[in-house]
Simulated scan of single mutants.
Amino acid sequence: MALGRIIRACAASIALVGLVSAHGGGGAHQKPLQVDPEADWATRHMAEEHHIGNFDPASFFTLHDFDGNGFWDHQEILKFYGMEDQTAKDVPQSKKDEIISEIIRLMDSNHNNIVEREEFMAFVVDRKGALPDFGTGPGHHWDIEMEYEIHHWEKYHDENTKEEDLTHPEDIAHFKQHDELEDEADRQAAMDKQPIVDHNIPAKFRRQQ
Score class of each variant (00 low, 15 high):
residue 162 K to D: 14
residue 206 R to Q: 15
residue 94 S to F: 12
residue 115 V to W: 01
residue 127 R to D: 11
residue 152 H to K: 05
residue 111 H to A: 09
residue 127 R to K: 14
residue 139 G to P: 11
residue 39 A to E: 03
residue 79 K to W: 06
residue 158 D to C: 11
residue 93 Q to Y: 03
residue 77 I to D: 05
residue 206 R to K: 14
residue 50 H to Q: 12
residue 53 G to M: 04
residue 179 D to E: 09
residue 35 V to N: 02
residue 35 V to R: 13
residue 24 G to M: 14
residue 50 H to C: 06
residue 193 K to L: 09
residue 94 S to K: 15
residue 42 A to K: 02
residue 88 A to N: 10
residue 23 H to Y: 09
residue 44 R to C: 01
residue 116 E to S: 07
residue 191 M to G: 08
residue 92 P to K: 14
residue 194 Q to H: 05
residue 59 S to E: 12
residue 105 R to P: 00
residue 43 T to N: 08
residue 125 V to Q: 13
residue 55 F to A: 02
residue 48 E to P: 04
residue 132 P to Q: 12
residue 34 Q to D: 02
residue 178 H to P: 00
residue 26 G to I: 01
residue 82 G to S: 12
residue 57 P to Y: 05
residue 173 A to Y: 00
residue 139 G to C: 08
residue 80 F to V: 01
residue 203 A to F: 05
residue 6 I to N: 01
residue 120 F to A: 07
residue 184 E to R: 13
residue 183 D to N: 15
residue 101 S to Q: 07
residue 36 D to C: 07
residue 88 A to H: 05
residue 117 R to P: 10
residue 156 Y to E: 11
residue 20 V to W: 00
residue 87 T to A: 14
residue 114 I to C: 14
residue 89 K to E: 06
residue 23 H to P: 04
residue 142 W to Y: 13
residue 155 K to T: 07
residue 108 D to F: 12
residue 117 R to H: 14
residue 59 S to G: 06
residue 161 T to E: 07
residue 152 H to V: 04
residue 49 E to C: 06
residue 75 Q to W: 01
residue 115 V to Q: 07
residue 36 D to G: 04
residue 48 E to F: 03
residue 89 K to R: 14
residue 56 D to I: 13
residue 143 D to M: 00
residue 162 K to W: 11
residue 123 F to L: 01
residue 205 F to I: 09
residue 9 A to F: 07
residue 169 P to C: 11
residue 118 E to M: 00
residue 54 N to A: 07
residue 18 G to T: 02
residue 9 A to R: 14
residue 163 E to L: 10
residue 75 Q to M: 09
residue 147 E to F: 03
residue 199 H to D: 12
residue 9 A to W: 10
residue 52 I to E: 07
residue 123 F to H: 00
residue 132 P to C: 11
residue 151 H to Q: 13
residue 142 W to H: 06
residue 196 I to W: 05
residue 54 N to S: 08
residue 172 I to Q: 06
residue 129 G to R: 04
residue 33 L to A: 06
residue 10 C to Y: 12
residue 158 D to P: 01
residue 121 M to D: 00
residue 4 G to I: 08
residue 114 I to H: 07
residue 24 G to H: 04
residue 152 H to A: 03
